[in-house]
Design a protein around this nucleic acid. Sequence first.
DNA 1: GTGAAAGCGCTAACAC
DNA 2: GTGTTAGCGCTTTCAC
Lengths: 354, 354
Amino acid sequence: MSELLPPQPVRTRRQHGAVRIEDVARAAGVSAITVSRALNKPDSVAEETRKLVWAAVDELGYIPNRLAGGLASSRTRTVAVVIPTITNSIFADKIQGMSDVFGAADYQLILANSGYSLGREADLVAALLAQRPSAIVLTGVTHEERAARMLGRAGVPVVETWNLRPSPIDMLVGFSNAEAAFAMVAHLHHCGYRRIGFVSAPVADNDRAADRLAGYRRAVAEFDLADRPGLAREAHFTLANGAAAFREILSAHPDVEAIFFANDVLAAGGALEARRRGMRIPADIGIAGFDDVDLAQEFVPALTTVRIPRYEIGATAARMILARLDDPETDAPPVADLGFEVVQRQSTRPAPSP
Amino acid sequence: MSELLPPQPVRTRRQHGAVRIEDVARAAGVSAITVSRALNKPDSVAEETRKLVWAAVDELGYIPNRLAGGLASSRTRTVAVVIPTITNSIFADKIQGMSDVFGAADYQLILANSGYSLGREADLVAALLAQRPSAIVLTGVTHEERAARMLGRAGVPVVETWNLRPSPIDMLVGFSNAEAAFAMVAHLHHCGYRRIGFVSAPVADNDRAADRLAGYRRAVAEFDLADRPGLAREAHFTLANGAAAFREILSAHPDVEAIFFANDVLAAGGALEARRRGMRIPADIGIAGFDDVDLAQEFVPALTTVRIPRYEIGATAARMILARLDDPETDAPPVADLGFEVVQRQSTRPAPSP
DNA sequence: GTGAAAGCGCTAACAC
DNA sequence: GTGTTAGCGCTTTCAC
């Protein structure tokens, strides 16, 4: 008997209860496109209509579906961000910078951690591009070729951050890690240090760490500083690892005069270890860090370090992206070198008076 | 003359160069739906077909459009997370926990900062729901009523975190901040302290801070401890503010025996200030913190504190969400009290031997 | 195991 | 200033 009935309409796939633009339109007595305009380009709609629409939106509790909007308009107001790890506070500061600027412009951040792996980064680029973000922000300037290829093809604005390179994929915001490390060693040399140890972050898949190490090595060569095996080591950023590296360098080279740590967390760990051993800073040994996090300034003794524009890297990247999205033809320079600053504090002895 | 021509087809809105499922289908000699199946449910497709499709995907560099997929299927594999601020490392640890679990399941995180404002939180809930996330994770258990209303209506799984409450919106993962603070004061009392200061985080729009303060107050009353104006103060989590609060309490109450700080950053700031003044810890004054961040353990002297399951809160929330999405009818308990632990270290004097 | 047709909810394009 | 129409690119539903 069923074959006698007319074909049943396909059962709707709509989720129960979800208010759509059509519902708002009906309630306001206008068309769907007018609701869309009242919400997205309020000026293009008569004031009276706008009020009607807004009232209906409020009453129905309408929350637009940005998937549908993004699909139709190819603009998602979403920005994808890849960082090595969220637990390193320097990246948290950068995220905060982006969050502040993008939050004010009604953009959402999609965040992903690569765990300091370029392979994982490339996988994430694919997963993130699938969300069709309005832009994508990477950490560092080295990437797998397939990542660069996907990015190029996708035609999405890309910002590389935290270092410099001659030919970025697209835009770039950072500072020279190599110059910064070189500058700190030059400063220590100027202050009379000659046997300077270095604790690097792991350089695998990490161009910032590799460049800092290169800067240290170049300075060692240029100033003819002590260059002995074991004076430079590698440690992942934790206080405990900084302490361990301090111990190792000191046992291999008891006459080391200062240790330059590739980040402040390692440096603080080293300084705490010195304290546990009853060594005085800087009388018995000099300690220098990198990043100028809060702890460096408040530590006793306050740490000599390199100040880097953590928050500003994020904020500037966000501003560049907004400028580009606002006007794709803009000729604003796509590269910002935000610089760095060597900060002399109490954990190393001061420069000789002239 | 133009009226004689047939109507021109509407110019397509497609983005140039974007590879679509249709292109892959053509290259593989199958239909679009088969490509979709090969990608999303590989088992439902013949092995040979699957290989054909995957080869075409590789060759064309196809990256699926998840906006379209999400719109069609109402499943976005996206989870929205609201935290007060990313610059507080305790939340970074929670994000890492979520990122690890969700990353393995191919879910993306959409992150937003409320800046410790419940009004901003409610705005963010609206903005985030517009992305139609598969679930949403909030920090804290107090929210504006409109936020709770939107969440209820949206029918999205919700996890509140970082505290307990009798009737969560939906699911909950946390620990009792009130009990934890009470336990620390009880511990200090047991160790012989009677005049205990407290440095609270700002309690406005922050139920975790408010509960810790309440726990302190309840213990003060219960153990009949010194309760004088100015023994408890409020400070936002920075080392400098911890130092300032330390100074203020000490100048108002020179006879204070110990200060309990509502987080380790404040506590370390207080301890560093004690050091600058040449005070010995714990001989001259006891210092206790909260959170058990890395610094607490490595600090010299190591800080007595309350260990809380920061990473596990994130990981557990993620697992709960995946379980729910996997089986909406699951009767897995929607509430997890992950507990806390008072950790006695060197910054307070030990309990009397029995 | 595979395919055709019909939407998902919104906005671009064009008309008036 | 407002409306109509036709997609955006995918997946659901149903048929074979």
